[in-house]
Amino acid sequence: MTLATCESGLFISFEGIDGSGKSTQVSLLADYLRKTGREVVVTREPGGSAGAEEIRALVLQGDPDRWSAETEILLFTAARRDHLERLIRPSLAAGKVVICDRFADSTRMYQGLSRGDLRETVDTLHNLMIGVEPDLTVLIDMDPVEGLKRAKGRMGTEERFEDFGADLQAAMRAGFLALAAQFEDRFRVIDGAQSVKDVSTAIRHAVDTVLSI
């Protein structure tokens, strides 16, 4: 079930491997939609609410083997539930467009597939505690080597998953493309090798199509 079936706003998620340019495109789309007169809320996962941001610090910092995949699934689901209750649902009920940098599909990939055969566990917890999907998911597809190079070049403090290396990036890319095929009604795959402007244009077209339905 998408949130459009129970709320009046529009919920858009962005997915992709690290370094795919999601954050830039989230900002550009938000600016575009605000110019059309829509109220837009930009958020991220893990995070987006006070409690979820505290969990973010736990899962994105430290040694790569700090948590098991099973523990990460529980932490991410807890953060997502708080995020949904405190920000996403209230914003959609007010008729706003919510743009989220990552949502449940990232957990399906990072913890569900790429760190172990736990996809069924992720989906079970998701169905029990979250129960909804975005109305539109924009997947920015990027070469894993180039994506990792970009991500490491940011020199940030939240590099725990980037430190797993190129093999994880490659597995993530393949997994995201498989998800896009599985949920083709929800996903729009955008070629991230294009210029920033061309990627933005393609995303605007996909969003405009959904908004006009």
Rank of each mutant, 00 (worst) to 15 (best):
L75E: 02
A193P: 10
D31I: 08
R56C: 11
G19C: 04
F103P: 02
I55F: 03
I140F: 06
E15C: 07
G116W: 03
G165R: 08
G156E: 12
G48Q: 11
K96V: 07
L10W: 05
F164L: 15
V40F: 05
I190Q: 06
L33G: 09
R204I: 09
A30W: 01
V42S: 12
S20K: 07
T43G: 09
M155T: 12
K22W: 05
N127E: 13
A180D: 01
P64W: 01
R38N: 14
Q194H: 14
G9V: 08
C100L: 02
V122S: 00
S212M: 06
G153Y: 12
D105K: 01
T77Y: 00
G147F: 04
L28G: 05
R66W: 00
V97G: 04
D185A: 13
S212C: 03
A50M: 10
E184G: 11
R160W: 09
L74S: 04
A181G: 15
G21R: 08
K149E: 13
T209K: 12
A170N: 10
T137E: 05
V59C: 09
V138E: 02
D141A: 10
V98W: 08
I55R: 01
D198Y: 04
G47V: 09
T121Q: 10
A166T: 14
I130K: 02
A104V: 15
V207N: 02
E85T: 08
V145F: 02
L28S: 07
R102S: 04
L87N: 11
V199G: 06
V138K: 05
E15K: 06
R119S: 02
T157E: 15
G165Q: 06
P90C: 10
D135Q: 05
C6F: 08
F164M: 13
K35M: 08
C6T: 15
Y110D: 04
L118T: 00
V98G: 03
G175I: 02
Y32F: 14
R160L: 06
H205S: 13
T2N: 13
R108T: 01
E54Q: 15
L60K: 01
V145P: 00
G21M: 08
S114W: 00
R80V: 07
D208L: 01
L75D: 01
G48F: 09
I73L: 01
G147N: 09
T209N: 09
R34S: 13
G19L: 01
L139G: 02
G19F: 03
F164G: 00
T77E: 05
A171S: 13
A151N: 11
G112H: 00
I190M: 06
T2P: 13
R56D: 10
G51N: 11
F176S: 01
V132I: 10
D65K: 13
L58M: 15
T24R: 10
E120A: 13
M155Q: 15
P144L: 08
G156S: 11
